[in-house]
Design a protein around this nucleic acid. Structure first.
Length: 238
DNA sequence: GCAAAGATTTGCT
DNA sequence: GCAAATCTTTGCC
């Protein structure tokens, strides 16, 4: 397999993440998320993200100020912020804006372009690790279910992106803009930019207005890989 | 020190 | 459609 098969790509420019997070979100849609080599690694394009902007954003982990967990959000742009949610799922964020300002983009869904088998293997590995103690039948059912998943559904949610790309706390702090990183971003070299729609963020009912209704979820409308909780939103200019 | 909730996903009723 | 699984982080005593 060659780069041409994926339409070509190159290191993701850090400056596209260094200022306005909403603009960065639109830029990140369509970008490649890559684990390992283009040959045997996982390659996908980002089709859904959510923005968490500033300490004033009452839906953000940064709403209580800097803590041990969210410190990465205050760091330099282009770095991975990975956390564990609900005791079992990891979530991958790309830090945005200048160092000292807490902002990040949660990668909610990726459309697999290459390394489909590696993604399935990683998903099965993850399911097996999680089902320890629940017996062999449970593990077998999980394997069968994952093997039967359509390609487009292998990374269609924030927890599933991390399972398919083997991302855990060990990836926290990785520079995603460094071409030498095993986990990294690359800028797509598409003929046409993907359409981008916006909608309120998911799973933040604890947040007061106006944060709850801010249309800070960005996604490719109609794409089969967007998370199951996604719904239609307003189309915006890239 | 302890109780409560969470940027999720799956499986069962 | 709802509850369980599971554990770190946060907030209050």
């Amino acid at each position: 397999m060659s780069d041409a098969q994926f339409g070509g790509s190159r290191a993701f420019p850090r400056h596209l993440l260094a200022t306005d997070t909403e603009a960065a979100a639109v830029r990140l849609i369509g970008a490649r998320l890559i684990r390992g080599s283009h040959l045997d690694g996982q390659v996908g394009r980002i089709v859904e993200v959510e923005a968490y902007i500033g300490e004033e954003d009452m839906a953000s982990h940064a709403r209580f100020g800097m803590t041990r967990r969210n410190a990465r959000m205050f760091g330099p742009p282009g770095v991975a912020y990975v956390y564990l949610v609900y005791g079992m799922y990891h979530c991958l964020n790309v830090v945005t804006e200048a160092e000292g300002r807490a902002a990040a983009l949660l990668i909610r869904a990726v459309e697999p372009l290459g390394g489909e088998d590696a993604m399935r293997a990683a998903r099965i590995r993850w399911a097996h690790d999680r089902s320890r103690g629940r017996g062999a039948p449970a593990r077998t059912r999980a394997s069968i279910r994952i093997q039967a998943l359509p390609r487009a559904r292998l990374a269609s949610g924030p927890g599933l992106v991390c399972a398919a790309f083997s991302i855990d706390r060990g990836a926290d702090g990785v520079d995603l803009c460094d071409p030498g990183s095993d986990l990294r971003l690359e800028l797509a070299d598409e003929d046409e930019p993907l359409p981008v729609a916006t909608a309120p963020r998911v799973g933040i009912s604890y947040a007061p207005e106006p944060w709850r209704s801010r249309k800070w979820r960005f996604f490719v409308p109609g794409n089969e890989s967007i998370s199951s909780r996604a719904s239609l939103g307003r189309v915006v200019q890239p």
